[in-house]
Each structure stands twice: as C-alpha cells, then as structure tokens.
C-alpha cells in the first residue's frame, strides 16, 4: 500500500504553490513549505518563549565562564521552581590533595584534620583511600578520566582550600558531629522518672537499649565534646583545651596505628614464602589446638568433617561485605 498523506487532496506541487501564494504576508508560516500538515501561525506562548530566549540567550549559552548555567538566579539550584533541591558542595581536588598530604605525608591525626577543614571523619578516610587508588593508577600508567572529572566538578559547587599563605580560615564543608540514627532510638518510649532525678543522655540511651552508648560516646568527636565541655564549665581556656585535645587525639591515633602495625607484622612473621620458578608457596604456621577438643573450633584450619556445606542453602547471601 502506498503511504497515505493526510489532508493532501490535490497534488503536492499544487499545494506548495498555493501555500506560497497565501503566506506571502505572514513570513513565519511561509517557511514550512515542505510540511504537509496545515500551517499554523505562531501561538502566543511560542512567541513569548522566543522572546524570552532572545533576551536570555546571551547569558544561557555563554561559554566564557565555567560553571552551570541554570534558568534561575542561583548557581546551586538546577530547578528554579523547586527551591528545596540544591546541589550539595563537593571537596575540590586541591582540598582532597591537602587532606591526603596532611594525613599520609605529615602524619597528622585524622580527627584534627577533620576538625580543621570541617569534613566528616568518614569522608576524610574515603578521601585518603581514593587518593591512594588515584596515585597507584598514575604510578601504573593507567589513564585517568580527567576531562570527565573536570566537567562534573565544573557543574557542582565546591568547598575550596583557602589560598596558601593567606590568613583565611577553611570554610567548613559539613557538620562533623553527625551521628547516624540508631535503630533502637526510633521508637516512641515513655519512661516514668521521678521529678527529682537528673535524667541525662546516658540514662536516655540506657532506656532505649541496655547496650546502647550515649550520644556523646557514639560521636566520632567525643574527645572534642569533652574539650568543649571543659571550656564551657571554665575548667580550661580555649587555647589550652584545644592544645590538650590535639595532643590527646594524636597520641591515641599513633597508639592505634602502632597496634595495627604490630598485628600486621605478627601475621607476616607467621608466613614463610618459598620461591620456585613459577608460583611461590606461602606457608602459614597455624596451630592444631585451634580445632579444640571436638575438632570443630571455628578458628581451626581445614575443612570440617561431618559438617555440611552451607553455600547451597536457600537465602544465603554471597555478596562479599568487605574488600581485601
């Protein structure tokens, strides 16, 4: 079946000439001579759209400055009608590099770096790990997606490092004292307490669950909370409290690092490597006593006798939960 042209009663050529003749006065309609749909002149809304575009085109399509060009007045509000949707700032690459240098090269405490730049402790850890990955990729000569990163960074607001040498204080990136809401604290609870009793946060935590720590102890910055409390009560002035806090945090983290290093060294000393021309053999010294009296101890080396494999059991999740 030949293709049907809707509304074309005469030949296309005659239609074309008719249109040309009729639309000589209205220039907008005359342009669509190839179209077989009936020509409609520009509506008011369409006219207003073009008018708006002509007024704002210079600003919207201006490529001279970096950054996003949104319709509204704000650079962090992609949808002008939704004022609640704001782009969250990301750390600039220079700031990430500075955090990495402070922790890995200079050996500062993670908590003091977190306080100085106003970055969450977990985010500081993530920055250090990702910078490690980036540096390894550069060392291995792997290509980086730099243009992609630059494009994404140009579209988002960034928390930048203050210019080196100036007296500017770093702008805090986020709240460093945010505690994830614990599952046990999400229920409504009525605890009868006598009026004379001083009901503290520790009591509240205990009321929710016996093993739940109070908020101050669940915070990543519990030492900082203690230091601030000392300042408020007038026990210490700000300078000496902060100095003591810094030393305390540094000592704690160094002790932890030494402990982890010792454990790793102990693990390493148990393994003896034997090089062959092909794959090396790594012999790890274990103890048969880990098996216990019945030979079924959970830390014992080797496959269990008389215990079924649970890997085919229904509902067993095999997605790994940790990275090596």
């Amino acid at each position: 079946m030949p293709p049907r042209v809707p509304g074309a009663s005469g030949s296309l050529a005659s239609l074309d000439t008719a249109l040309l003749a009729s639309s000589s006065s209205t220039s907008q309609c005359a342009r669509r001579t190839f179209s077989t749909t009936p020509a409609t002149c520009m509506s008011r809304r369409r006219y207003e759209m073009h008018k708006w575009l002509n007024e704002n085109a210079a600003r919207l399509y201006d490529q001279s400055s970096p950054g996003p060009r949104y319709l509204g007045a704000y650079s962090d509000q992609p949808f002008p009608n939704n004022s609640l949707f704001r782009s969250q700032p990301v750390l600039s690459d220079m700031l990430k590099e500075e955090i990495y240098n402070r922790i890995v090269v200079k050996g500062d405490a993670i908590k003091s770096v977190s306080r100085e730049f106003g970055v969450d402790v977990r985010r500081v850890g993530a920055v250090v790990r990702l910078k490690e990955v980036e540096k390894r990729m550069i060392a291995e000569g792997k290509p980086l997606a730099t243009p992609y990163a630059r494009a994404i960074n140009s579209m988002l607001p960034q928390t930048r490092l203050p210019t080196p040498g100036s007296d500017e204080k770093p702008i805090p990136h986020e709240s460093i004292n945010e505690i994830p809401v614990h599952r046990h604290t999400r229920r409504q609870l009525f605890v009868p307490v006598s009026e004379s009793r001083h009901f503290t946060r520790a009591d509240a935590a205990h009321a929710f669950d016996e093993n739940l720590l109070p908020v101050d102890e669940r915070s990543f910055h519990q030492e900082l909370i203690t230091a601030e409390r000392k300042i408020v009560t007038g026990e210490q002035d700000r300078g000496e409290a902060m100095k003591a806090w810094e030393l305390d945090v540094q000592a704690t983290e160094e002790a932890h690092a030494a402990k982890v290093g010792e454990q790793l060294e102990k693990e390493r000393s148990r393994v003896k490597s034997y090089e062959t021309g092909r794959a090396a053999y790594r012999i790890k010294d274990v103890s048969v006593d880990d098996a216990g009296r019945d030979g079924k101890g959970p830390r014992a080396s080797g496959w269990r006798y008389g215990a079924p494999h649970m890997d085919r059991k229904r509902g067993a999740v095999k997605i790994p939960t940790s990275v090596p």
Binding site: R136, S273, R278, A279, A280, Y281, R282, I283, K284, D285, V286, V288, A291, G295, A300, S301, G302, W303, V323, P324
Partner: peptide
C-alpha cells in the same frame, strides 16, 4: 588435621597480576 593446601595459584589483590602464589596453612 595439620592444615590446608590450596593448589590454585592466585595473585595478591593489589599486587602485580602476574606474580602468583599458592597458600598453605600448616
């Protein structure tokens, strides 16, 4: 049971991919 022997050669997770080893616990 003195230990285990894993005869499948494998690389370190972040090491060189062509440097293989076999694990023995004993």
């Amino acid at each position: 049971v003195l230990g285990t022997y894993d005869p499948v050669p494998k690389a370190d997770p972040y090491g060189a991919p062509d440097k293989l080893h076999k694990d023995i616990e004993m």
